[in-house]
Computed example of a mutant assay.
Amino acid sequence: MTNSSTNSAQQSILDNVLGALLPFAPLLIAIVFVIGVLVALHYILLAKQSHLTSEQKLPRQVGMLVLTIVGAVVIAMTLPVSESTRNQVIALIGVLISGVIAFSSTTMVGNLMAGIVLRVNRPFKVGDFIKVEGYSGRVTEMGLLDIEIQTESRELIAFANTLMVNSPVSVTRASGAIVSVDISLGYDIHHSIIEKHLLVAAENAELTEPFVQVVGLGDFSVSYQISGLLTEVKSLLSARSRLHKAVLDSLHNADIEIVSPGFINQRPQPDGLKMIAKMPHQATQEETSPEDVIFDKAEEAEKKEKSKESLMQTIADIDAKIAESEGEEKAALKNKKATAEAQLSALVQTKTKEG
């Protein structure tokens, strides 16, 4: 009787425990399922892809964030509480998310969301010439929270992503940029003669499709603007300097003075002498490109970005060939892929250390 009573008591306690835990079964299953799915996706999308840069990981990280929120809602729907309480919990999650978004304009989340917008719209990329808030230069980095540019004085300036989204940004097109020079000349020379020599100057400066405009008629001089298309935008600074020199040479070689009509020289000069600088007869020295010094970081960043894209495309092509190959050819392709992945990983690690 004692053993039977003991067994009955233990069975009763076990039934009570199981009865108490049974309502929590859906919750436990949901928690295990959500955590398992999130861990597996994190390993597949992020942990396993060590060669991806922070910029390439951003869409995957955002996707994981969305899935985490969905998982939290799924867990909340399985809570062993009344329907009204469950709805309140789900509403609380929605309020928290809404609050984060509402305050995102002045917080780190705002810059993160602006960074997502910039990567979706892609108004510019690393290496492009841009102008924002009175600053101009080449883009060196596009981070999760800010954009860094290198100015013409070789300074590095970081702009918050929210500023880049809310402010007008001028981007020099990769297909070419217009280079212009303004110059004022007297009324004593017909504009057709000036136009002819300015067009010659633009051609000597290696600009295509040049054109001349009369932009102003002053009291003492006429304002001209000579413009041309520069297809190699990386040499924008050199092209401007080259056009200025070409304008000087073209007008002076045509015996046209570039001087104010009110010019007065107190030194006695023979009649008919014109103030024109003569070309020296010595061999001209080869000019160095100022862009190599000014935009060194931007140039290096652009080269690494192109190398990274090339390696990723190579890996994708190899994957496509591996699926169609067999035997020794497949093994050789796998070795080639491993080499490309090692190069890509080394490139990403170098960029991370420099950052």
Score class of each variant (00 low, 15 high):
residue 54 S to Y: 07
residue 291 E to F: 08
residue 186 G to K: 06
residue 229 L to D: 06
residue 143 G to H: 06
residue 256 I to V: 10
residue 66 V to M: 00
residue 256 I to Q: 06
residue 112 L to V: 04
residue 117 V to T: 01
residue 169 V to Y: 08
residue 220 F to D: 14
residue 80 P to Y: 03
residue 355 G to Y: 06
residue 240 R to E: 15
residue 313 Q to P: 09
residue 32 V to S: 02
residue 20 A to H: 01
residue 81 V to P: 00
residue 70 V to G: 03
residue 7 N to G: 14
residue 170 S to M: 12
residue 261 P to F: 10
residue 141 E to T: 14
residue 343 Q to L: 15
residue 312 M to A: 09
residue 268 P to C: 14
residue 239 A to R: 05
residue 8 S to G: 13
residue 233 V to N: 02
residue 49 Q to L: 15
residue 15 D to E: 11
residue 351 K to V: 09
residue 133 E to H: 08
residue 262 G to H: 14
residue 322 I to M: 06
residue 208 T to M: 12
residue 252 H to T: 15
residue 250 S to H: 04
residue 237 L to E: 07
residue 66 V to Y: 00
residue 188 D to G: 10
residue 113 M to K: 11
residue 115 G to S: 03
residue 204 N to Y: 06
residue 81 V to M: 05
residue 237 L to D: 09
residue 191 H to G: 01
residue 209 E to F: 08
residue 28 L to P: 02
residue 45 L to G: 03
residue 105 S to E: 07
residue 129 F to A: 07
residue 1 M to F: 01
residue 21 L to P: 02
residue 351 K to W: 07
residue 77 M to K: 13
residue 88 Q to M: 12
residue 222 V to C: 03
residue 335 N to F: 02
residue 196 K to H: 15
residue 111 N to T: 10
residue 49 Q to V: 11
residue 191 H to T: 09
residue 260 S to A: 15
residue 325 S to M: 01
residue 264 I to H: 12
residue 311 L to F: 11
residue 61 Q to E: 09
residue 219 D to N: 14
residue 208 T to C: 11
residue 278 K to R: 12
residue 165 V to W: 00
residue 203 E to K: 13
residue 136 S to V: 01
residue 174 A to Y: 14
residue 176 G to W: 08
residue 256 I to K: 06
residue 129 F to V: 09
residue 109 V to K: 01
residue 281 H to W: 12
residue 68 T to E: 00
residue 6 T to A: 09
residue 49 Q to Y: 09
residue 159 F to N: 14
residue 247 V to I: 10
residue 273 L to F: 05
residue 227 S to F: 01
residue 350 T to R: 04
residue 294 I to T: 13
residue 134 G to Q: 03
residue 161 N to A: 07
residue 163 L to M: 05
residue 353 K to D: 12
residue 304 K to F: 01
residue 225 Q to S: 15
residue 2 T to N: 15
residue 54 S to L: 09
residue 169 V to M: 08
residue 112 L to C: 07
residue 148 E to C: 08
residue 343 Q to F: 03
